[in-house]
Simulated assay, not measured.
Amino acid sequence: MKTLDLHASADMLHMHPSTVLAKARAGEIPAAKPGLLLRIYELLLTATREEIDAMARSLAEIE
């Protein structure tokens, strides 16, 4: 399974790296920290992005 570092994950999510780090620490983004490096699984991040997009579409329909 492919993993991404913090900056690649931030680029993929169109977020600032510090926002991605905060979300990973809060458990909102699935991540692992082997040693000193934060690693995020691309497959899980993609699923997370799809869920975020679905929620945004649902909210747009309500307004």
Rank of each mutant, 00 (worst) to 15 (best):
R39I: 06
D5Q: 02
G27W: 10
H16N: 13
E63D: 14
E42H: 02
K2T: 12
E50V: 10
D53K: 10
A31F: 06
G35W: 06
L44I: 00
T3M: 05
S18R: 14
A47Q: 08
L38P: 01
H7P: 00
A56P: 04
L21M: 15
L59P: 01
P30C: 09
E50Y: 06
K2S: 14
E28K: 15
E42D: 07
L45A: 04
K2N: 08
I29V: 14
A32P: 00
L59D: 08
L59H: 09
E63N: 14
S58H: 11
P34L: 05
L45Y: 08
A60Q: 12
A8D: 15
M15H: 02
K23D: 07
A24N: 11
L4K: 03
K2Q: 14
A47S: 10
M12A: 15
P30E: 15
E42T: 01
L37R: 11
L44Q: 13
L45H: 04
G35Y: 05
R57E: 11
L38K: 03
H14L: 14
V20C: 04
D5H: 01
L44E: 15
A56C: 08
R49A: 06
A47N: 09
D53M: 09
L59I: 12
A47W: 06
L13A: 09
L43V: 10
T3G: 06
K23F: 07
L44N: 14
A54I: 07
L37F: 10
V20G: 04
L21D: 14
E51P: 00
G35L: 11
L6W: 10
M1E: 14
G35R: 08
P34D: 05
L21F: 13
K23C: 09
T3C: 03
A26K: 13
L59C: 08
M55A: 13
T46W: 00
A10I: 01
G27A: 08
E51D: 09
H14S: 13
A10S: 02
P17S: 06
G35N: 07
H16C: 09
A8W: 01
I29A: 04
